[in-house]
Amino acid sequence: MLRLPALFTVPGDALTGAAAMGARPNSRTLLAIGSSLCLYEAGMALNDWADREEDAAERPHRPIPSGRIRPGAALAAAGALTAVGLALAARAGRPALAVAAPLAATVWAYDLGLKHTPAGPVAMAGARTLDLLLGAAATKGRTREALPSAALLGAHTLAVTTVSRDETQGGRPLAPLAALAATALLTHLTTRPPAGPGEAATRGLPGTTPHTAPTPSPSTAVTTSVPRPSSTPHTTASPRLRLTALSPPSSPHPTPLPPGTTLRTALALLYASTAGRPYLHATLNPSPPLTQRAVGGGIRAMIPLQAALSARSGANLTALAIAALGPLAARFAKKVSVT
């Protein structure tokens, strides 16, 4: 019921939020991660409780329809996990609680009413966006600088959730095709150098240098002799121009890539591969099995996307730590379904 493989996609939200703020993870970041994990699992339990009748017809193997878990126990677990998640956010500070409260409300609203409406994918995207901002608020007490990264992660979540609406029936290639296009766009945006308030270019993070005007090289110096008046009154001095040619300018050295560019690009390509291939397969054959694989691939792709966004913010060690969660998620996905 708790979908352990999907749980590995959660810590990267808070870590990416901290990276977007130009800060190292601290104890408050860890509290935000704990809060995110609790709220995420609360949503999983609440989802199964809300869908128990639908799952009985379409997915009888799930915990509640199969009788392994009672509906009341799932609902109680959702309530308890939500309370613990909010308590952890409160320990991280008032700014973190101010983000966690609407995050919890969004999770409950999605599972209890919005999931089967056109607003469902938007609500899920909003939850992931808030989850990243929770890490920023807990770490630094504000969120403005993390908004660009949160928007990119929210856009990916919107695409995945839209595809997931057909995972039990399939038959519509438009949703995975749109998700494939969104993945290409997000890959392009993630590989671009960061710019703007709160990004690495304005924070002096590794790989950035202040812009200075070029200094003229002495090898291009030009001297001009000024005509002197002649000492002889009847003689007119002709103006003279003397060009002093020094050694030719040396060829400029190629500008080295900023630190982290290669890592950011590699992680962005890993994201594109993880999400793009199953989206393409579902576009060509929108059957339920391939659509479910596309959803699973989109969920797992959140990990390299979070890592790429962290590397884009200049936090290379954080990016590597997040990326290390990917193999663990893939390993557990072979035993437990992500969806």
Rank of each mutant, 00 (worst) to 15 (best):
S230I: 04
S231E: 11
S231P: 12
P233E: 11
P233R: 12
P233M: 03
T236L: 14
T236M: 09
A237V: 10
S238A: 13
P239N: 08
P239F: 10
P239Q: 10
R240D: 08
L241W: 08
T244L: 14
A245Q: 14
L246H: 15
S247C: 09
P248R: 15
P248F: 03
P249W: 07
S250N: 11
S251L: 13
P252K: 05
H253D: 14
P254E: 06
P254R: 00
P254N: 04
P256R: 06
G260W: 02
G260D: 04
T261Q: 11
T261I: 09
L263S: 07
L263G: 05
R264E: 11
R264F: 04
A266C: 07
A266I: 07
A268G: 02
A268K: 02
A268C: 02
A268V: 06
L269F: 07
L269S: 07
L269M: 08
L270R: 14
L270I: 02
Y271S: 01
A272E: 00
S273E: 11
S273G: 08
S273A: 14
T274N: 02
A275K: 05
R277A: 14
Y279G: 02
Y279M: 11
L280W: 06
H281K: 13
H281Y: 09
A282P: 05
T283G: 01
L284Y: 04
N285M: 08
N285C: 09
N285E: 12
N285P: 00
P286G: 06
P289T: 06
P289K: 08
T291M: 09
T291R: 03
Q292K: 13
R293K: 09
A294V: 00
G296N: 11
G297R: 00
G298Q: 07
G298T: 05
I299M: 04
R300Q: 13
A301I: 03
A301D: 01
M302I: 12
I303W: 00
I303A: 06
P304V: 08
Q306R: 07
Q306C: 10
A307F: 09
A308F: 03
A308K: 02
